[in-house]
Each structure stands twice: as C-alpha cells, then as structure tokens.
C-alpha cells in the first residue's frame, strides 16, 4: 500500500470539529482513482421532532482500538490504498459532522462499498454513545435494543 497518512490523521476520536477537506486530504494517494468521503451530521429534525444538540461519549481506549481495527479491515477487505475514520466526542450542534469516513481505492466501487461497510460497523460495534437533547431540554442516551456491542468478531 502506498504512502500511509500519519496515524493520528487516519484514526481520530476527539472533541475538535471534523473538517471534511482535511479528511479527504488524509486519503490522497497517487494509486487512488476513487475517493469516497462520507460525513454524518447531527440531525436537527427527526420526523418533525427538533433536536437541539447531541452529546457523544466513548470508552475511549476501546473505541480508538475498534476504529483502528475497522480501518485496517477495510483496507484489506476492499483493497483500499488509503482510509481514514474520524468520530467526534462531546457536544455536536445540528448540522455539524459527528462522524466521517474517507476511503480511497483504485476504482470507485470499492471506495463506496468500504465507506458503507465502515459506517455499518461503526454504528454496530464501536463503544460510542449519543445523547439527544430535545427542544424542551429533555435528554436521552440512546441504547438501542439492537445492536448489542460485540467483541472482535471477525467476519
């Protein structure tokens, strides 16, 4: 695989805002022909219900390790030449990015597939939680019935 971005650029879990351009730059690679950037933003309205803000927290060592492992699996599984996975912690206002993945492959198909796969895995496996705060100030941590967090289950 060609020039790897610095570790801190490839996987990031932090409170600073996510700059999509920076993420895309982190996966620039001469062997890339398809570069897919997915940005998940905090949704301000869900089925007519207003969300004032989201707050994210994580088991940081486990979450960082899980993000790094998923990135490596994506590189291998989809034949990517570069990949970056960032997730935000702390308070995120509507419209701001809470998560972003970038995948670069020789051709677009693998890059699209990798970005989709990474997002599915992040939402299912990585120990990160969001708290929704509504217009009325009501707060709720989301712990969906499905998925339950899962170990290092290899596919």
């Amino acid at each position: 695989m060609a020039s790897e971005p610095a570790g801190s650029e490839a996987v990031r879990l932090g409170r600073e805002p996510i700059d999509p351009a920076q993420l895309l730059a982190a996966v620039a690679d001469p062997a890339a022909g398809g570069n897919v950037l997915f940005v998940g933003t905090a949704r301000g309205i869900t089925a007519g219900v207003v969300t004032n803000r989201l707050t994210y927290e994580a088991h940081e060592p486990l979450a960082l390790a899980a993000l790094a492992r998923l990135r490596l699996r994506a590189l291998d599984r989809f034949g990517l030449v570069a990949c970056a996975v960032w997730h935000r912690l702390g308070t995120v206002a509507p419209g701001e990015a809470s998560v972003a993945v970038a995948a670069s492959a020789p051709h677009r198909r693998e890059a699209f597939a990798a970005a989709e796969w990474l997002m599915e895995c992040i939402k299912a496996e990585v120990p990160i939680w969001k708290c929704e705060e509504g217009e009325d100030g009501r707060r709720e941590w989301l712990h969906p019935a499905d998925p339950t967090p899962r170990a290092e289950a290899e596919p």
Binding site: L62, V99, P127, W129, L142, D146, P147
Partner: peptide, 10 residues
Amino acid sequence: VAVIPPVSGG
C-alpha cells in the same frame, strides 16, 4: 472493568 451498554455512535 468497564460495562459497555448497547452502542449508538455515528
């Protein structure tokens, strides 16, 4: 030891 409830990142 840590307890990891069902996740909701993304």
